[in-house]
């Protein structure tokens, strides 16, 4: 009879209305500021620079090789190399970025910089509450604002951080083995002028 389809639809919405008091599955609203959705581990918003230890300047893993600057599709990373060197994550003296700006008003959070970075120096953060009314200052993050500790990285991406740490410790082990081997050959030759250590970086 006429109206039978509409009644079936109304029954459906009535069931949903009654169900919303009873079954949690039908009550999907998450009252954001008070109640939050469980953070999803693989989430990515904006990049950040990882540093080991406590001091962000010396512990920074980035060696300013500028691969991420070239590969970034919207071109929102700007790097300037430092003049002097400091030991990097594996302990080899490398350059470090004197200036590392990310313009989060352009960044499309596509994580290609993370994918192409050979030094595990840049990872994706999950912090998304960044709305601001300051156009020029608030949206251009410089080196200091970007740097976050490795512990923080373990906090937001535990499994990925563990894999990265394993790779780094293995790298350090290989580097130590190489330096000890170089030290032994160096000692044997003794009188010979030691060659300049191989240039690191790109």
């Amino acid at each position: 009879m006429l109206g039978e389809g509409i009644l079936k639809g109304l029954a459906e919405t009535a069931k949903n209305f009654a169900g919303s008091f009873v079954s949690a599955e039908r009550m999907t609203t998450v009252e954001y500021p008070e109640e939050r959705i469980a953070p999803i581990e693989a989430a990515r918003v904006f990049p950040f620079l990882v540093y080991d230890g406590t001091d962000w300047e010396s512990g920074m893993r980035c060696v300013a090789c500028q691969i991420c600057e070239k590969e970034c599709p919207p071109k929102c990373i700007y790097i300037e190399k430092s003049k002097d060197k400091k030991p990097d994550a594996i302990g080899k003296p490398q350059f470090y970025p004197a200036k590392f700006d990310v313009d989060i008003a352009v960044c499309m959070s596509c994580q290609i910089c993370v994918e192409v970075c050979p030094f595990e120096a840049i990872k994706m953060d999950t912090e998304f509450e960044l709305s601001t009314d300051d156009r020029f200052g608030g949206l251009l993050l410089d080196r200091e604002e970007l740097s976050k500790s490795n512990e923080y990285y373990h906090q937001i991406h535990p499994t990925e951080a563990a894999v990265v740490d394993a790779r780094l410790t293995e790298g350090r082990a290989k580097a130590d083995a190489k330096t000890t081997a170089a030290a032994i050959t160096g000692a044997i030759r003794g009188a010979e002028i030691p060659k300049r250590p191989a240039e690191g970086g790109d």
Binding site: E69, K70, K75, C76, I77, Y78, D101, V102, D103, V106, F136, L140
Partner: peptide, 10 residues
């Protein structure tokens, strides 16, 4: 006018 991260092509 305002290109805070300009390099290469830009």
């Amino acid at each position: 006018e305002y290109e805070p991260t300009a390099h290469e092509q830009v």
